[in-house]
């Protein structure tokens, strides 16, 4: 029995298996946003109707900011969920959509068909999406009354998730 081989082997093997085991339960695609708990990035965008919307305008009331586009399949799924939620939370929460890499004309046609749930802000350079650290649409940010981000959600929303996310800021 060569002890040296055994010891060196154990030193190499055990941490390796431990680390790989630790990696198993985790989803490599799920990334925590560093913005949660921080003030939302400032923005100044124009919506489809031509009105300017600034971050400051949202102060005083909780807000749900959703990044979406018409070419994104999960966004299409969550659209009716947002329409219903916007109706349900009408007076208590501001619902803001930010268009991610899409054309205003396409958006208008889409909204005419499927119904709108809030102002749709156009982010022509994608600068606001970058400031919010958007990895891919749909992504949803929840802002409390002071404009601090309390939660970020990746992927299509369902009614229960919307309720849970908003419960914290109401």
């Amino acid at each position: 029995m060569n002890r040296r081989v055994l010891v060196v082997g154990a030193i190499l093997v055990l941490p390796l298996v431990w680390v790989l085991g630790m990696g198993l339960g985790k989803d490599p695609k799920r990334i925590e946003s560093p913005l949660v708990g921080k003030p939302a990035p400032a923005f100044e965008l124009v919506d489809l109707a031509g009105n300017t919307v600034r971050l400051e305008d949202l102060a005083g009331k909780p807000a749900l900011i959703n990044f979406w586009s018409t070419w994104c399949v999960p966004c299409v799924y969550e659209h009716p969920v947002l329409v219903a939620a916007a109706r349900r939370y009408r007076d208590r929460v501001q619902f803001i959509g930010v268009i991610y890499q899409d054309e205003p004309t396409t958006i208008r046609a889409y909204l005419a068909r499927s119904g709108a749930w809030g102002p749709s802000l156009i982010d022509p350079t994608g600068r606001t999406a970058i400031a919010f650290g958007v990895y891919g649409v749909p992504e949803t940010f929840i802002l409390d009354r002071s404009g601090t981000i309390t939660a970020k959600y990746d992927g299509a929303l369902d009614p229960a998730t919307v309720d849970a996310l908003l419960a914290e800021v109401l």
Binding site: Q101, T125, G126, R127, A129, I130, V134, Y135, G136
Partner: peptide, 22 residues
């Protein structure tokens, strides 16, 4: 952010182009 391990400089996707512009 939308690619697999590519840099913003390498990727041809619109998101990457927007980030490079920024």
């Amino acid at each position: 952010p939308v690619c697999q391990g590519l840099s913003v400089a390498d990727s041809p996707t619109t998101s990457a182009v927007a980030m490079q512009d920024e």
